[in-house]
Design a protein around this nucleic acid. Structure first.
Lengths: 214, 214
DNA sequence: ATAAGTTGTGGAAAAAACTTCACAACTTAT
DNA sequence: ATAAGTTGTGAAGTTTTTTCCACAACTTAT
């Protein structure tokens, strides 16, 4: 069940929003100011917050980074009547995920809510992707060299690889080739030539990304 | 010397912008459409692009993710005359870094350009870490989880980290924190709070890049 | 003041990763 | 046909990484 926190000082609007959300099959709770909201965020996990910009006390704009910090995975949708592009840009830069201009149609709200819940769910799966295999492949310097070599040269014979790497013991290379094969990064054709698989190519590109970025 | 790419189909505006930027001590080049721009981005490194939304062929909005993909470290500032909040939100969500509404004052442009170059420079900081250290840091699943957690949460206390990871033995976490400290990915402040270093932040970004691409 | 919780260190033991070596089947050049 | 080179396996041994445990200094709550 997905839970939503509505942060708005207007009691009527807050109640209406909660009703609408619950009609849509979601669980919703309200908070009338940012401080109360932050306390709630500490106590339970919300998948999404609807945040009013204009509030007494801590205003919505300042609240964004605070919410982001307390609940890094929670989606933040900002709502405001006094909107400007400046404002929207700033809100997104501070970590909001979406921006709704009041008055908005219920449909627009629900669309945004569903879209963001959907994306959040997607990102969750993403994190549980098994990167372990990838890293096992990339963790060794010799294996990285092999990947880069194959990326440059395409299909290569075993002994050519060994010589290019300037390794005396060919069985050592063999060991790492086996690891790479098990990881699914390289493949051997019928003529025994080694080359990168699709995943291997992607891995090589990750390597070049890392070397550019670190 | 910082180089900027101006992508706009309007010849006069393009030339004017390039002049203004060069008067400001920057190096600027123009491209009259997105495809040409992408080719240029392949050939050389730009620190920042100014991107018009409305263009024949590939429009600016579609160009944002393409540019982001080709040049992940390049700052993207979007310019448009036909602006709406919708539009601004979408642009930022697609990976733009800032949004200017035409007509804008030269000063506003230069301010945004300088601010973004400044931020980019900050992100660059110390170069040339060897990949082996990077991979030692990233090779272990628990260490990756720590990096991601710290990336989300910022400064975190030791036991909070342990609990978030749901590890029974706190000394195990301690061991990996030590490795991460030696790798230069994390740091501890005077109050014993752990947080990512600049390198650590970059490593975390590499992680998210890999999880997206593999 | 005492207990409970936090933040660590160091070392033994286990597990995983890596290297080295002995050997063998197979292909190609001479 | 025979030597030289290629491609590979498996096992033993080494090194590195990781876990687990005993313990302790320090801080914070009661």
């Amino acid at each position: 069940m997905e839970t939503i926190l509505v942060i708005d000082d207007d009691h009527d609007l807050r109640t209406t929003l909660i009703e609408v959300l619950e009609d849509g099959g979601l669980t919703a709770q309200g908070a009338e100011n940012a401080d109360l909201a932050l306390t709630l965020l500490e106590q339970e996990t919300f998948h999404l917050v609807l945040l009013d910009m204009v509030m007494p006390g801590t205003d919505g704009m300042s609240a964004i980074p605070l919410i982001r910090k307390k609940a890094p995975k929670t989606r933040i949708i900002v709502m405001t009547a006094f909107s400007s592009i400046q404002n929207a840009v700033q809100a997104l830069q501070r970590g909001a995920d979406d921006y709704l201009v009041k008055p908005f149609k219920i449909d627009a709200l629900m669309l945004s809510v569903r879209k963001n819940l959907q994306e959040a769910r997607f990102q969750e799966c993403d994190e549980s992707v098994d990167m372990d295999g990838v890293f096992q492949g990339l963790a060794n310097i010799l294996r990285r060299q092999i990947l880069i070599l194959l990326h440059h040269q395409g299909k290569t014979r075993f002994m050519d690889l060994v010589r290019a790497l300037e390794i005396k013991d060919h069985t050592k290379v063999n060991f790492h080739l086996k690891v790479l094969r098990e990881t699914g990064f390289i493949d051997q054709d019928i003529r025994k030539l080694y080359s990168l698989t699709t995943n291997g190519r992607r891995a090589a590109e990750c390597l070049s990304f890392i070397s550019k970025n670190m």
